[in-house]
Amino acid sequence: MTQSEQIPRRVLLFVTCTVDQLYPQIGESVVNVLERQGCEVDFPAGQTCCGQPAFNAGFTEDAKAVARRFLDVFAGEDPIVVPSGSCGAMVRNFYLELFHDEPETLAKVRQVAGRLYEFSEFLVDVLHRDDLAAKMSGSATYHQCCHLLRELGIDAQPKSLLASVEGLEMREMEQSEVCCGFGGTFAVKFPEISTAMLNDKLDYAIATGADTLVAGDATCLMHLEGGVRKRGDTLQLKHLAQVLDEATSTDGVAS
């Protein structure tokens, strides 16, 4: 069997509620990149949210109700791609916790979680593409989103994808693995701590002199970009999918 025969063509996109409502352009970039790699992307229209906001706030019962729905919407056999480490971790790791005492649901969780891949992970580990023949000029620094790095253990994949972009100079920032201070409701409940963390993150990113800060999660980007705008910094913020979309697009611009 050749490699191309093993590669799945049809994928289900779990776009996440944040991307759907706040960053639809990231979703479009994900679709563009996957399609250019020969995938046929389907968007299960019943999807909304994975339940993480309630789970993180301690509302376990509400989170369970929403999670059950998610499992139904994403039933099937095709691989699921999600452009978020955090929502990916919710399904892959925290659903196990949420349903630890419900064996039947747990079986469903394992079935769905076993098919769910984070965007960069899918490209590198499933499609075996760590070089998309991408080109782009400029410089970037990469922020390692917490759940992507520590819950899912995805570290090398996004870095190798970025490193493969011809013309894009990558500059490592200090404390690139440290949290940006978002943490869901944490950012509102403890604004001073959250802001202090955010400012450190932005200061370290800016200190690299890179023009773009790249991350793998729309929620972190929302936090970082909100800070950049308030501070009046010129740093650009991009999701990895946007960088790859732009760098593989024939007209050189992300749609």
Partner: peptide
């Protein structure tokens, strides 16, 4: 106290 965390996993 239990809410004073971003659950970053470090």
């Amino acid at each position: 106290l239990p809410f004073a965390s971003t659950l970053c996993g470090a």
